[in-house]
Write a protein that binds this DNA or RNA. Structure first.
Lengths: 246, 246
DNA sequence: GCGATGCTTCGGCAACCGCCGAAACGATGA
DNA sequence: TCATCGTTTCGGCGGTTGCCGAAGCATCGC
């Protein structure tokens, strides 16, 4: 009776994500890269014309944005908020089945390492976060995350581009990892770490997927010394690293 | 092509919320109280039999739980995680329309004060949070929230039941308020404050709605001294206060 | 200029799903 | 015991919506 209006707005957004094809599109985009309509069609598993309709709806709802370039049309999520919403829904879906469910390696590559819009997720990201926490550079919890003084000094010396403190985007947002159920790092720090990992070759994008391939260098960085402090030969711009193709 | 599985799980949950009747049911339940099937039917705006079907689906998905009592059947959200998901989706829906939308007093009572599962939201809650922050008891930000030392002392002296530090539930989780777009307080502190506000008569539940009525006492508490430190005549158990009927 | 490619619009088909009413079930109270 | 109330199950109807293929626009390369 009351609050009918809220229910309607809630339902319209949810029903948008509630279609399998559209959900697949959003999943594909939640890697953070811009993809063409054709690529998205193959991700969605439906024809080009159908995909076009879906994309129009998503765009009208403001969940994705369009970028015309040449004869291609690139689509990307309209912002981190949308990505966060997707991950939240994902987490809630995971709690969903009270029945037994095969917890097995469903998309093992994704569980291992994947990009989550503008930062990393999966086992690799979670372990990275824990290493940093062990060394006293971070504190992560349900309540959020923050960088300690030692951490600030470390990241600064390490050459991470954290950007000015300005802007409303939080420095360190902690994300409950959908597959691992432990925390990984988001926010500006998460973005910088992702760019750094790509720049140093710790991880590499896998074409046509959110999955990331963890290189030997990446393994070594995590297992061994982690964050030796030689500066990079060439500083990596976060945006440049993130938008480079697979 | 890849990550099809993720898309499917995402879609199943989202499509569950994507129906207007079910969304209304979830909205009604997100006040935190348990409601009967009949009440939910009137909230949903559909017949009893239809509602029954919806409830079965929601329950099977693990979003709500059932409690049989006499010849009634009580339904409630299965946990704070579900409530958080709903609020997140709500927030994302709000960013949705890039077009002009009437920002007017849509459900004014709800914007003023409402319960959000186990804590308060709306203007009242936001202002309360800001008062506490001004006085240096809290720090709230995108990254999360935490209670300062002064705050700990204050809340302890004030007699808030914060519960042991144990348990995985965060003490102070900050929530972006759906209507106000500013922060309000969740987590264990949010629950304790809600119980306190109910116990002291600052706010009262409105029957059949998430809305809360702010009493004169409540106004006074907020505007004037706020948190005079006379102890309550009778300590209020959080759960007791929260589950008391309207 | 021309064809080829990428994407969108349109029309029509089919399946899904939410809705209701009638009937069955279970619990309560006289 | 029997009526009553709250809730669920069942069967059937109707609207929505996702799907495709064909045709229409753009853009690029030759």
């Amino acid at each position: 009776m009351t609050s009918l209006a809220s229910g309607i707005t809630l339902a319209t957004t949810a029903s948008l994500i509630g279609d399998v094809a559209r959900a697949n599109i959003l999943c594909a985009l939640s890697g953070g890269q811009a993809l063409t309509a054709g690529e998205l069609a193959s991700h969605a598993g439906v024809g080009a014309s159908t995909t076009s309709g879906h994309l129009a709806k998503l765009a009208e709802a403001g969940l994705i944005t369009t970028l015309k370039q040449g004869r291609h049309r690139y689509y990307r999520l309209s912002g981190p908020k949308v990505a966060a919403m997707i991950e939240t829904l994902m987490a809630a879906s995971d709690l969903t089945p009270p029945r037994h469910r095969p917890v097995g390696p469903r998309d093992e590559a994704l569980r291992r390492a994947r990009s989550c819009y503008d930062h990393m997720a999966g086992r690799f990201a979670v372990e990275l976060a824990e290493r940093l926490e062990e060394r006293g550079f971070l504190v992560l919890s349900d309540e959020g995350g923050y960088v300690t003084e030692a951490g600030s000094a470390f990241f600064a010396r390490f050459g991470l581009e954290l950007g000015a403190a300005a802007g409303r985007r939080p420095l360190c947002r902690c994300c409950l990892d959908w597959s691992e159920r432990r925390f990984h790092i988001g926010g500006r720090l998460g973005t910088a770490l992702f760019a750094h990992a790509l720049g140093r070759g710790w991880v590499a994008r896998v074409a046509g997927s959110r999955a990331l391939r963890v290189t030997r260098t990446g393994e070594a960085a995590l297992a061994g010394g982690l964050f030796r402090c030689e500066p990079l030969d060439r500083p990596v711009s976060a945006w440049e690293a993130l938008t480079a193709s697979a």
